[in-house]
Design a protein around this nucleic acid. Structure first.
Lengths: 341, 341
DNA sequence: CTGTTAGCGCTTTCAG
DNA sequence: CTGAAAGCGCTAACAG
């Protein structure tokens, strides 16, 4: 039996009360007697009215209980990235507790106008690939929380990428090492390649440039130079690019004996590649990662890396958004020495 | 400069035309001259009107361009599961092409009434942990596509789990083997445990019971019996439970020399555990997985498993939903023998 | 504590 | 091709 969906008005008529009373029964318990309320709610359940239409509520109240999570790039890349999906996990946990829903939004979308009118706010994870989004986000007035980058006027959540990178590099390096760096989104390029003297992408605000700064600081202290033809750029944190870079760097003559990787995904592919070439790690080659994803603890030898809690980041950013406060915060990290250095 | 958001009415007044004309300029190009249209659109851009309010459009048109992806369990579990997130990747790719947005919905939510009024349809990935959702999904009239399970009246996408499991087990087994099974969601239990004679959960519709059927068929053909105290149940496809089960099964005396795992996550943790105990794989212990996640190809030895394309599944299910057709389909899989059997 | 009413911002017939 | 007007279904102020 298919029947037309009941409206609040229909129900009010059927029960012989006003529409306001029905509405109040669902939304504002304090506006009517408890007995009347349960009476109405029971009657609604009986006749099959599940409550006010959400689309109408969204328009009327200007609130949808939907939070948009703007990811740095297309969902295609982001959703399978263990760092990103652990972050999403954290966000979803807090949203759930607060009866909010999660809309995933790609950072390479054309604009946010598709959703800005109805979502309750934005969590922005990494600088969106399409820079227009940052501008639009600044111009609209729904609350925004940014993570791993900054947007004027909005609270941000970060870790100290520079200091963390400095520490892991410092732990890995010895005087006289031959060092290469496998970096991420350092220059504008759709391909895996060495950076040479390409113009740097977003050099002040991007976290990967902070990591680079940290590496350089450590390198300087042990008096090692890394030329720009020994710094690779990966366009995305994906296995495919990592394999390409790993093969390139491992086939250099002379070969580096330390490789600093800006993510665990990169480091893991490099490790896998090195082992299958019969290279001894860490004897002939030391490797460091970044992020502390789970798989990095499952390899043998297990990875030296910087562990940051993406779950915690996700939870904090969701809490921050829901609280409405404008307080940026820096989260802790932990350097894990592992067996690869 | 913060200003009140413009409405279509405001704009109509400012430009000295009727509201319908503005609306048509944005939504129905055929309803007015091309020149008038561009004139209006330009004017809108100039005065900062980005188009009709989406919340109002949703109410009025009954269409939001949002698709809800109902996952089997809480997002907490699902989003970091490589099988699930590869599926999400496929879905998102197709939605993107069609300018639809993705709302993630937990399968352990109380109900779908929070969103049913405004989403355009549901993709349901695995039987929702809360069985009420299945009922509600059946009762409402937005389009639904199910994946890895069936819902009366809605098209479904599956692979032949029983046949696939039969094949991988058949490849792994030799007469006289001592076999254990690490299963998934076979019984109702929040813990890792042996199933003994607990009542089976959802035995007709669940894919993991189909996998069990496939294993048993293969076992029967080589005349091997597996008692219910050598069948483990994991409540979720998560590393934590897998480690528990791996330790339990590997500390049995006598120890099984073949372990059939219902997912790669389980198989990988088992492998890792076995290797760290000094057990030779596949010499002393053969292992099979299921799913064909990427990490299963990166281990040494690399995993024998059933590869199914979750991306493809995701893409097909999104296409199916958007097409509105009611055609169920079965997708192919591939048995990869690997080095663990 | 209950009922009436004016919109939220838009789309879409229907006359002109 | 354009404009006037009736809602989509609901909420919240206000009067009773």
């Amino acid at each position: 039996m298919i029947m037309k969906k009941l409206t609040l008005k229909d129900v009010a008529k059927q029960l012989g009360v006003s529409t306001a009373t029905i509405s109040n029964a669902f939304n504002r318990p304090d506006q009517l007697s408890a007995s009347k309320r349960t009476e109405i709610l029971d009657a609604c359940k009986r006749i099959g009215y599940t409550g006010p239409n959400r689309a109408a509520q969204i328009l009327r109240k200007g609130q949808s209980n939907i939070v948009a999570l703007v990811l740095a790039d297309s969902l295609d890349y982001m959703v399978t990235d263990p760092v990103a999906n652990t972050f999403i996990q954290g966000v979803s946990r807090v949203l759930r507790e607060n009866h909010k829903h999660l809309l995933l939004y790609a950072g390479d979308s054309e604009s946010i106008i598709d959703v800005v009118d109805f979502v309750d706010g934005f969590i922005c994870y990494g600088a969106p690939r399409n820079p227009d989004l940052s501008v639009q986000l600044k111009q609209q007035n729904k609350p925004v929380v940014t993570v791993d980058f900054n947007l004027e006027g909005s609270p941000a959540i970060n870790i100290d990428n520079e200091q963390a990178s400095y520490e892991i590099a410092k732990a890995a390096l010895k005087p006289g090492d031959k060092v290469a760096i496998l970096g991420l989104r350092l220059i504008e390029s759709p391909n895996t390649c060495r950076i040479y003297d390409s113009p740097l992408l977003d050099a002040e605000s991007s976290i990967t440039h902070r990591r680079l700064d940290g590496y350089f600081q450590a390198l300087k202290e042990v008096d090692i130079k890394v030329e720009s033809d020994w710094i690779w750029n990966l366009p995305e944190n994906a296995g495919m690019y990592a394999v390409q870079a790993a093969k390139e760097v491992l086939s250099c003559h002379p070969r580096p004996n330390v490789i600093l990787c800006m993510s665990d995904i990169i480091a893991l592919e490099l490790l896998q590649c090195a082992l299958s070439m019969g290279i001894d790690v860490p004897g002939e080659l030391r490797i460091t990662g970044f992020d502390g994803i789970e798989e990095a603890a499952r390899t043998r030898p297990y990875m030296a890396t910087v562990c940051q809690s993406s779950v915690e980041k996700g939870m904090q950013s969701a809490r921050l958004l829901l609280s409405g406060e404008n307080k940026s915060m820096s989260l802790p990290y932990e350097v894990r020495l592992g067996e690869t250095i």
